[in-house]
Design a protein around this nucleic acid. Structure first.
Lengths: 338, 338
DNA sequence: CTCCTTTGACGAAACCTTTCGGCAAGGCTA
DNA sequence: TAGCCTTGCCGAAAGGTTTCGTCAAAGGAG
């Protein structure tokens, strides 16, 4: 006549182990003082009974939910271009999910909060923001509400040290040096002037490198909403110069293909007449003809580092400055002159 | 000397509105009976005070967490090929997130549970499983634990009606008819024999169509781990036949490009000598040369439908059979013979 | 005028875990 | 032996919401 097939609680464990609920709690949370023998007894009781603490009860009492939220720039769901960075974003999400689970937390994906009400609904311990825009609205909201946040890529207006970024300067120099080593003399840059650290750092590094190497900088800006078409237009204008570039470094995803369009159109070839490199690797660059050399931004490493950093921030540690991830250059046919 | 900058609770709302906490709760949950005037008073009190119910407290009492989990096939994070369907998966995640938020829930992304312990950690109201494998382990675990689940795409061993699927048969026929209309006489199929409904349905529809149209079926199977390379090999073997096909329908993502490789290699052209269509649309098919006609599997619609279905299952409704989403054929240059 | 039903609202218990202060027993010091 | 500290454990309160049963007042029927 037993009417208790219900999910076990900490009380069941306590009874089974012959201790108090407090002691069980202390054991599973590694708090307080408890005799090793007792600890052992409790742990076996836990697994015998098959108990898992309710996240909600724990959260209610402790004030910590054990949940991180990840805010992606999902604004354009459904609109044509919005998947341009799908690969990168998906890698971020997947890796964040894996990392949060490893730390016994959960990862929530959410549209970016623009308003305190959205935020309150979130009810999480911390937030990871991918690709923050300059002075990101969401970030302000979170700061005001006292919700710990870290960003993946740096918000250029921020200086608090709570973010993860790639070594944009280093990767730019690496690309420029590589192109030079392959014989390029006049390297042009295709980028955007959107307020993202990625673009700013790259442009700055390029300018400095040009100055140091006594090369005349040639830059073309594209419209991030239509990367391929506007990149093609930009490169066309470069090719019409009296002294056209012999190599192109195209940053935003999609622009290397636009560059390739323009070059092919002009009857020139890659890598024969021009070298071509991309700033963000992805399938499309791997399968184009020729395959295009590009910078691997290491999204998986970025994500893991971000989760780690957020965990530290949530637990009250002081900021130690941003985490910098080294990128890797994937050399392919488009820059292999022989 | 006010020491209460704390987050407001339902009690604060109750006091402000001059009613009991019970009444506030009834109002916000549309339960019980409450006078329209009172309801109004409570609602303004809620927004005056700026109160949002704690998810954890609500969950603790009601037993419902307001969270759905989404399990993706994230097994291969980090391994080379794993991002093949990144675009599709990302669209699923994004759309699921949007849809759950719309229904005032949250979406959690998680690795697929393989074991009851993983599952207990989940602590969610329901689970969405994308791309279930035949007799998916996770599904068994969930069923045994009594956790409501729906799948995106059908688990071919299941018959309970709780899933969302695309009209694979319809889309196959649409492609075959389209190719025929463009002049194809001998259409070959490149697919995989992995135990997924997508492949099974397509193969079956193809076989039936061939029988009805008195066409000799020609099928090549690929290795899903290396779609492009094995598809190229398969198509090479087709082209060596004494009576080679004049059109190819390549299903898994990546295979149309492999087919294109093999065709180009043989000195033939698309769409001049052969027509080519893909079973799953994506950027790589849009930007290849020529752009390749493909089936848009409507991930966004699938996701929204899945969330909707799960909500119904969670609230105890009876299954009404699977939800079928109509696909759309994106016609491009690769099948445009003129 | 009485009795019954409906309406509108409420008090208190329950949900499950963590936290806080306390307490008994044993060991050590002087 | 007295006093103090450490160890190991526990009781009870607290955290915010929903649920259950109750109840007074108003309305309707006879």
């Amino acid at each position: 006549m037993s009417t208790k097939p219900a999910r076990p609680t900490i009380r069941d464990v306590a009874i089974r182990a012959g201790v108090s609920m407090t002691t069980v709690s202390d054991v599973v949370n590694s708090k307080g003082r408890v005799d090793p023998a007792t600890r052992e007894r409790v742990l076996t009781a836990v697994s015998d009974v098959g108990w898992r603490p309710r996240r909600s009860a724990r959260a209610l009492r402790s004030g910590r939910t054990g949940v991180f939220a990840m805010c992606l720039p999902l604004g354009h769901v459904g609109v044509g271009d919005w998947l341009t960075n799908a690969e990168y974003d998906m890698a971020l999400v997947a890796a964040c999910a894996a990392a949060t689970v490893d730390s016994d937390r959960q990862l929530l994906v959410a549209p970016r909060p623009t308003d305190v009400r959205d935020l309150a609904r979130l009810d999480v311990d911390g937030v990871i923001i991918a690709d923050p825009r300059e002075g990101d609205q969401a970030l302000t909201v979170l700061n005001n509400a006292g919700v710990p946040a870290v960003t993946i890529d740096r918000d250029i207006q921020r200086t608090d040290g709570w973010w993860v970024e790639t070594d944009n300067t280093g990767s730019t120099l690496q690309v420029l040096d590589h192109l030079t080593a392959q014989g390029a003399k006049r390297i042009a840059l295709v980028t955007a002037d959107a307020p993202w650290a990625w673009f700013e750092d790259t442009s700055a590094a390029y300018a400095r490198w040009c100055a140091e190497h006594d090369v005349k900088p040639q830059v073309r800006l594209i419209d991030v909403e239509r990367p391929r078409a506007t990149a093609a237009a930009g490169v066309r204008s470069l090719l019409r110069l009296k002294n056209p570039p012999d190599a192109i470094f195209a940053i935003p995803y999609g622009t290397p293909l636009g560059a390739l369009d323009a070059i092919t159109e002009s009857g020139l070839s890659v890598p024969g007449d021009l070298l071509l490199a991309g700033g963000m690797d992805g399938q499309m660059l791997q399968v184009s003809s020729p395959p295009i050399t590009a910078v691997d931004l290491r999204p998986i490493e970025m994500a893991r580092a971000a989760v780690d950093l957020l965990a530290r921030r949530v637990s009250g540690e002081k900021a130690v400055g941003p985490v910098v991830i080294q990128t890797e250059l994937r050399v392919r046919e488009s820059t292999s002159r022989r």
